[in-house]
Design a protein around this nucleic acid. Structure first.
Length: 804
DNA sequence: AGCACGCCGACT
DNA sequence: GTCGGCGTGCTC
């Protein structure tokens, strides 16, 4: 009996692959890993063939595999194995995982773009629905099914399109291979919003376009805007003409033209002996040809990057490839530039911010083996590198490696798995390793390599703690800079140095409070106070993004007693401008990035010394090296410590250490000032004294005592629903099933309880935490007890990183 | 995720 | 009396 059925993973959140009949003619092409076209419900989708089977499941009318799209599997076998592992480990639908593995290559129905054929343009439409579609296409030229749906809102667009397509009146093509994610797209021009608003003029449609774009926070196509606002294209064009919007005519790239890049002449830098020893260990493991895991440690500025770049070179020399991962897309360009200089055309970047055609090209260069060294964020763990020799996970402790949407995978953990199936060397790199990795070193699963000294004369900064309990009037007056910090800032500025200040809140104040009645203007959908943004004169909900005007009088009691309580970056900027008139300062947070167009624009001004003080959210702590920074400051360390999350302390420690490391790279010794209500807290003390071992010991003790990871494994089950009672009932039912299960003996089920943010975006949220010493036991219990179709939206998060 | 089916309010 | 709101359920 020959296999005549195919298991196909389709990009739909189904736990299992679907079975299709495999026509005899296609059988020779049906290799696991090739893409196939199939029909799912009413949609024709591209899926991935996972395997063949001889028997069909009973009682289902099978549909055929319609087409095999690839002559050979596009993925190296280990990547398909990695996809399966991701599905099993993270309890994520295989189709969703494969969508992450094949970025852009499993187009959904809505991605298909249609245009009229000559026949369609001439022949009279056969129905009212057809007439609408034809009319829309005549106007738009080419439109995706999703655009048409938005524009027409007709109830049976798929059927209409199918009929038109069958009659040869329209042709549809998947967008695959089409270029320019941002082609024909517009974004707000950089500049002051008030000034831009003036240029918009009085057109209400124009204002709405600007509002929509601001809320979206990304470029949008003209068609999207037209659909969203209901205006004509002329409105958008006029805004472009007036300089309110800028238009992308080209695919935006990172400005990385590998082929024109000159190889920088670099004198071969001699490695220090500790670097040399670490490199030798990595190269030795490469030559061993088997999986080996390392933790490469060393304070900021110890030269870890140089070590792993040379290890990558060693892998390439041995005919193998290397994958270099960084926590965020924003950090890709800097490393990619360095890699491009060293490896020229043998380097590639892969991330979701690339335009479609560029991503396609890079992906193909990686798959074909032309690119030998790939740089990217967590999603790059699925890069189709052949002959993988080395995987580097830089800043491995960074929470950004955890994807917070399906599939909820952890880039570092998958990197370790991939290395183990590919017989590659995996190097986790950090100055402040995660507790997971520290424990893996203790348990012998990772080998530790330590760089003990800083490059050049760079000295670790001097730590100063400011006890805010002695400055109680400060927050009340909307002040966030203590006298001590002010003195240190003044001294640094007078010495001609620069400073970086961290404040983890955007906007003017986290609260606008009525002094008369206590009304705090909460978001209706999230139940949390809105943040006051004075520059934009709006109250924003930072959880769902909704915006409302600032009321002059309290909507509850009618008093004109609204007061800004606390301060965000916007208010800190104002305070600094008062304290240091004439000193150039700048803000780096999501708002300022949106206004100015890019992170790079702001950082460049600071690097060039045009700005003296940089205030910002966590964004200021990552990656960038500024030799003239002599002072860094944390305005409110408690904002990090107070998070309702067992990893809050670890994150605080890593952040403080990282921020301190921003300074003191040049000749001058730097200082770090930490303002806090908990000056004695061990995370703060350890960061101040550079006592890494002390921090680790204390935090490990806490985790062990309270049975938290890494000593246990957890799965979070979160149920969301607009109906509070139903959400509560359903999560309760799941809890009972978990506890009643025979496998429940080895695990603990905590809850159900309201999630820390009980309501978000109009949905009530309840959660269960399942915890046990064995991750396998925990996952298998959860997998066994999950409902087939839960009432409400169920989020399953294996090894959760933020419990919100 | 789509997409369709199905059951209750404001309109020709 | 219909158009259409989104709750609910299915996809080989």
């Amino acid at each position: 009996m020959t296999a005549s059925f195919a298991e196909v993973a389709v990009p739909v959140p189904l736990a299992h692959p679907l079975v299709y009949e495999l026509p005899e003619a296609l059988a020779p092409l049906a290799l696991p890993g090739v893409r196939v076209r199939v029909t799912v419900g009413r949609r024709r989708l591209v899926g991935v063939l996972l395997g063949l089977r001889a028997e069909a499941p009973a009682g289902i009318a099978l549909r055929p595999v319609e087409e095999v799209l690839d002559a050979e599997p596009l993925l190296p076998p280990e990547v398909l194995a990695l996809a399966r592992f991701t599905t099993d480990y993270y309890l994520a639908p295989i189709g969703e995982v494969l969508r992450a593995v094949f970025p852009g290559r499993l187009p959904a129905w809505g991605d298909r773009r249609f245009r009229l054929t000559d026949a369609g343009a001439l022949a009279p439409p056969r129905s009212a629905a057809e007439a609408m579609v034809v009319e829309a296409l005549r106007e738009l030229g080419r439109a995706s099914a999703a655009d048409l749906q938005r524009r027409l809102g007709s109830s049976d667009l798929p059927a209409t399109l199918a009929a038109l397509e069958a009659a040869g009146r329209v042709v549809g093509a998947s967008r695959e291979g089409q270029s320019g994610r941002y082609r024909n797209a517009v974004a707000l021009a950089p500049g002051d919003p008030a000034e831009l608003a003036q240029r918009v003029g009085r057109s209400p449609a124009g204002r709405e376009v600007v509002e929509v774009l601001a809320a979206l926070g990304r470029p949008a196509t003209v068609h999207e805007l037209v659909a969203a606002v209901g205006c004509g294209e002329a409105v958008v064009r006029r805004l472009v003409g007036r300089g309110v919007l800028r238009q992308f005519t080209e695919v935006e790239t990172l400005g990385l033209d590998r082929h024109r890049m000159r190889a920088r002449e670099r004198p071969p830098i001699a490695l220090r002996d500790d670097q040399e020893a670490a490199l030798a260990a990595l190269v030795g493991a490469l030559d061993g040809g088997a999986f080996a895991g390392f933790l490469l440690r060393g304070v900021t500025g110890a030269g870890k990057t140089e070590v792993y770049l040379r290890a990558a070179a060693a892998a390439v020399e041995r005919g193998r490839t290397a994958l270099l991962m960084v926590p965020e897309i924003a950090l890709v360009p800097a490393l990619a530039r360095e890699v491009a200089e060293r490896f020229r055309g043998a380097s590639a970047i892969l991330h979701s911010g690339l335009g479609e055609s560029e991503r396609e090209q890079e992906w193909e260069r990686v798959r074909s083996g032309e690119a030998r060294v790939v740089v990217g964020p967590r999603s790059a763990v699925f890069a189709p590198l052949p002959e993988l020799g080395l995987v580097v996970v830089d800043e491995e402790q960074d929470a950004a490696y955890k994807q917070e949407s399906v599939p909820r995978y952890h880039g570092r953990d998958l990197a370790l798995f991939r290395g183990s199936v590919a017989d590659a060397v995996v190097v986790l790199v950090s100055a402040t390793p995660s507790l997971e990795s520290r424990l893996n070193v203790e348990r012998g699963k990772l080998r530790q390599l330590e760089l003990t000294r800083r490059v050049g004369q760079g000295k670790l900064p001097e730590g100063i703690v400011v006890d805010l309990r002695g400055e109680v009037t400060m927050p009340l007056r909307g002040r966030s800079v203590s006298r001590r910090l002010e003195e240190e800032l003044r001294a640094a500025l007078e010495a001609g140095d620069q400073a970086i200040l961290l404040r983890n809140r955007r906007g003017y104040s986290p609260l606008l409070l009525c002094r008369a009645c206590g009304e705090d203007l909460r978001c209706d959908d999230c139940g949390l106070p809105r943040t006051y943004h004075r520059r934009e004169a709006k109250l924003l909900c930072h959880y769902c993004g909704s915006r409302i005007a600032v009321p002059e009088r309290c909507p509850t009691c009618g008093e004109a007693a609204m007061e800004a309580v606390g301060s965000g970056t916007e208010r800190v900027e104002e305070e600094l401008a008062e304290l240091f008139p004439g000193v150039a300062l700048d803000v780096l947070d999501r708002d300022s990035v949106r206004r100015r167009g890019s992170v790079a624009a702001i950082l460049e001004g600071f690097a060039a010394g045009r700005t003296r003080i940089l205030v910002g959210t966590q964004m200021v702590s990552k990656g960038h090296h500024f030799p003239n920074v002599a002072l860094t400051g944390v305005l409110a360390a408690d904002a990090f410590l107070g998070f309702p999350d067992f990893r809050a302390v670890e994150r605080t420690y890593a952040l403080l250490t990282q921020l301190a490391g921003r300074g003191g790279r040049g000749e001058r010794p730097a200082k770090v000032v930490i303002q806090t209500f908990h000056p004695e807290h061990y995370a703060i003390q350890a960061a101040l004294r550079h006592d890494d071992a002390g921090f680790a010991a204390e935090e490990m003790r806490f985790r062990r005592l309270f049975h938290y990871p890494p000593y246990t494994r957890m799965v979070q089950l979160l149920l969301q629903s607009t109906n509070r009672a139903r959400a509560e009932a359903e999560i309760g039912e799941i809890g009972r099933r978990l506890r009643a299960h025979p496998e429940a003996a080895a695990v603990r089920v905590l809850g159900p309880a309201p999630a820390p943010f009980e309501r978000l975006r109009g949905k009530w949220r309840f959660q269960l935490l399942v915890r046990g010493a064995s991750g396998k036991a925990v996952r298998s219990l959860v997998a066994a007890a999950l409902p087939e179709s839960p009432a409400g939206e169920l989020v399953v998060d294996v090894d959760p990183y933020s419990l919100l």
